[in-house]
Design a binder for these strands. Sequence first.
DNA 1: TATACTAATGACTAATCGGTCAGTTGTCAA
DNA 2: TTGACAACTGACCGATTAGTCATTAGTATA
Lengths: 278, 278
Amino acid sequence: MVKKQIIMEKSLELFAENGFEATSIQQITERCGISKGAFYLHFKSKDELIDSLIDDFMTKFVAKIERSVSEGQPKEELLYNYLNVSFSEFGQQANFAKVFLKEQIHAFNEELLNKMQGYITILNKILLSIVQRQFDQLHPSMYLDIVFATSGLMKSHAELFLIEHYKVDLHVLCSSIVEKVGIIAEHAKIQAIAPEYLSSVNIKTSYSKEQLMELLESIQQETEINSIIWESLQMLNENLQEPKLSGALIQGLLKNIKVESRCVWVAYLYQSYLENEK
Amino acid sequence: MVKKQIIMEKSLELFAENGFEATSIQQITERCGISKGAFYLHFKSKDELIDSLIDDFMTKFVAKIERSVSEGQPKEELLYNYLNVSFSEFGQQANFAKVFLKEQIHAFNEELLNKMQGYITILNKILLSIVQRQFDQLHPSMYLDIVFATSGLMKSHAELFLIEHYKVDLHVLCSSIVEKVGIIAEHAKIQAIAPEYLSSVNIKTSYSKEQLMELLESIQQETEINSIIWESLQMLNENLQEPKLSGALIQGLLKNIKVESRCVWVAYLYQSYLENEK
DNA sequence: TATACTAATGACTAATCGGTCAGTTGTCAA
DNA sequence: TTGACAACTGACCGATTAGTCATTAGTATA
């Protein structure tokens, strides 16, 4: 399936250059040096292409972030790692970042929008967990303010080198943001964002039991899944139908499947489903 | 010209809903309850419509900002005023903000892109002048870091109520950002953005002598311009052809024309032209 | 060499796009 | 009532779009 990869790369180039709506299948096939028919051998429609692009990048991205801020890491370095992975990934996949992270998302249909919003919510949740761990002396009412301050600082700097092509030393950039966030966390008193905000976002992006089961099964059907992950998925699926596993067992199974980057996303959905249930 | 106003309002609605590329003239005329031909009586093309929308909003916006942070204001309130005007204007013109400030600018042609970039540069310059005045004990090497930190904080909060429709008390929001920026200005040491960045942006957005003269003349031809502004424009124009006025005189003339909101933008261009010349 | 099968092609369709223009309507003054 | 004129209409145009499908090219097996 080399050709599929080529289509994805070249189309991402074109989307970054001209935007999603303004890029035609014709243009994509021309740049790939293939015929129009060949495109439709790999993708059912233009929407399926963009769907694949989002999943392909975001599952890997979330998995890398997740790994860099996992439990083993020293807590002082969590935010730095998050920023470092984010920016270096943006740099390597500048085209994706240009198209999707700049949220020129108007052009998408509702389904894609929800999908993208889901990933962004996950990233915000990871960021929230970082803030909670790294700034543990902070009053919880300020958590969300710090989360949004961080993503704001990230955004303005990301634009500088995505659009203006302004080059900065990666280490200096991350250190400077860590410093600024740290300073805000230490001194800021005025709270702008109420914690209720988070729950309203959670509800909006949650999946139903049936959607979740379908998702678990679709991953099981992939060929390269190993047996431990397969069994874990199976048990998680059964537990949805008939809840009988304890919280600790579920957490263990979720850790099992998070090894596979394709599953990190599902693990989050599963977790937020359980949170919404109880 | 009531109908022209209706077209601009309704098209902005549609652009905010579906994006610029995805909105057809057909859709616009349908929502306005007019025929396709009637649209083309008021606008030469779709591009001219978007051009008008940008100019209409941005000249007023820049003028309002400019006024709220002008020399008379107490320096402790400058940033607060800037934020207050920005957010309340975003709130009132949420559709415009959705379409243009979210920088889904890919869809535009080069000309529109430059125009938009020009306005954004002006806003950044105003913000820079605010930072210089309000945080006057700050080391100049940190100016740009503070400017970008501010616009980053603005962005993440603007998204909250533009996309997520999360309502915040305007005063609390502005105070919280002022507080955070103030804290960063006081304590931050690591500089991420070098001052050279600003000059590179300046050059990119500057106008040629001829373009500037053309612009001055086009404003003179508008009917509602009063005589003082007309004469000031005339002398500024002549001074471009043959520089003979002193710096102080030019600054005075520029202050004259800034009374008219349509001219604030031109005054900035004139100023940055002179800066690039010497 | 003949057969079978997949990969790939590009002319084709129906729909939609921005934009045009010959013709209709409404509103005045004469 | 008439004629002049501006405001307005919508059928129409060429270009372009996403998506289809009968046909062909390429390759491996018998």
